[in-house]
């Protein structure tokens, strides 16, 4: 039996605890945003407020270039991963074949394998296949580690999917392609979208695999930051990081809102 007093004590303790967790999670982020407005070049003390780093960031062409490169690589690898991953998930859901169990298990390996091992293996593979290191090899590498995540999210969505819906469509005169484009894909779209978001974020902040699989012609944003650490990070990097965070926040809010709207629409 619990008295009122112990309950309220527990309540205030859990409140304190969760406050602490949130501070722990968000304080570093707040610091980065804060120092992007710092007049001082060094980031130990806050001296005054300025927007000048944002101006410098725009002028820092190599920084911006790396960022643009990151976006290109992330978009391309996400597109590849979404197409291959979705088709794989649908095929695995729909058809019974003998080696399904083995393929299933094989999908987990790229996920659990240390990134550094995957990076080295990809590097070796590119060397053997004579693929020059650059943007193309980077896109292939990122698609490789993203595919399993898309398969997982799409398959999770499919797990509650009633096959007779597809049969009903076919019964009403839809051929296989029409069933796929008009029924299956729209229904599993939330799974595809979350897989795409996952693939995109994984690609944007990947460092280790990119480090092995790209050349000097195709530097990504994380690689650029790593490079600049040696000479001390300048606040314009903070400025760009802050902007990335803002964009991420907006994307998250939009996707949450549309998920909420969808849920309302279908009454769930």
């Amino acid at each position: 039996m619990q008295t009122k007093k112990t309950v309220s004590l527990q309540n205030s303790f859990s409140r304190l605890f969760s406050t602490f967790v949130y501070i722990f999670l968000y304080a570093p982020i707040a610091i980065v945003i804060l120092f992007s407005f710092n007049t001082s070049r060094r980031n130990i003390i806050f001296e005054g407020f300025t927007f000048s780093w944002y101006g410098e960031m725009i002028q820092n062409s190599s920084l911006l270039q790396s960022f643009v490169n990151t976006l290109i690589v992330a978009s391309a690898s996400t597109a590849i991963a979404v197409v291959i991953g979705t088709l794989t998930a649908v095929a695995m859901f729909r058809y019974r074949f003998k080696v399904k169990g083995a393929i299933d298990a094989l999908l987990y390996i790229p996920v659990v394998i240390p990134e550094i091992v995957l990076g080295i293996s990809l590097l070796a593979s590119f060397a053997i296949a004579n693929v020059p290191l650059g943007r193309i090899s980077l896109i292939i590498a990122h698609a490789t580690f993203s595919i399993p995540f898309v398969v997982f999210t799409v398959r999770a969505r499919l797990s509650g999917y009633d096959r007779s819906i597809e049969e009903a469509a076919m019964d009403l005169g839809a051929n296989r392609i029409q069933v796929l484009t008009g029924i299956t894909i729209p229904i599993i779209a939330p799974g595809i979208i979350s897989g795409a978001i996952l693939a995109f974020t994984l690609s944007i902040d990947d460092f280790i695999i990119s480090f092995f699989t790209t050349g000097a012609s195709s530097i990504t944003f994380p690689l650029k930051i790593m490079e600049s650490v040696r000479s001390g990070i300048r606040p314009d990097v903070y400025a760009l990081s802050s902007i990335i965070m803002l964009i991420t926040l907006i994307v998250v809010i939009i996707s949450q809102l549309s998920a909420y709207k969808n849920a309302k629409k279908s009454g769930k």
Partner: peptide, 20 residues
């Protein structure tokens, strides 16, 4: 003949309406 080529329609026990 594929299901979509048969002049027959089915009412499924689970209804199988298109949820979207």
């Amino acid at each position: 003949k594929e299901p979509f080529e048969r002049n027959i329609n089915t009412v499924f026990q689970s209804y199988a309406l298109f949820p979207h």
